[in-house]
Amino acid sequence: MKNHVWKPLYIVLAIVGSILIIRTVLVPNDFGMHERGYMYGWHRKSNEADWKKVPVKYKTAKVCRECHKDKYDDIKDSPHGSISCENCHGPNYNHPQDPVGLKIDTSRALCLRCHSLLPYKNSARAKIPGINPDKHYTQAECVMCHYPHDPTRSNPKHRRPEVKS
């Protein structure tokens, strides 16, 4: 056959060949069809390990209890006993190495997440004591009067400050 027939064919073959070579270089070896089949399982397998490597920051109250048993006993039977320590004390990260101490969130905003009054009678929110944040001791932090580990007690660390409602 004549050259003008073969020539474009060679060019096409060369392009296809180079794409296949580039593909083997760029596509990782573990890329392919995995457990969930062609439709859902087509991926780079080692990415699963990448996601498993994400550091755990919230270590849960179980870890806090190992060293701070006294604080655990302080809160466990109170209405706040179901709140994980890290919700107020911040995530553990690698405490006590890094950070050495945790910063406690004593802001009004944290308490108001549950204790800002919303008039939803059918909702579980109605069972939580609520206040109007614009009227209830607006200039004070809640912990100045209320003891966060047991809200049924007043805070022993603080004298009831002279704030006006």
């Binding site: 969930r36 439709m39 859902y40 399982g41 087509w42 780079r44 990415n47």
Partner: peptide, 28 residues
């Protein structure tokens, strides 16, 4: 179980693991 987001991915960057979790490969 039938994630439409995985079906439409043209490059295989999002996928479902064997245990059913849908993930995204950030590098892909």
């Amino acid at each position: 179980e039938n994630p439409p987001c995985v079906q439409v991915c043209p490059v295989g960057a999002t996928y479902q693991t064997e245990d059913g979790v849908v993930l995204v490969d950030r590098t892909w």
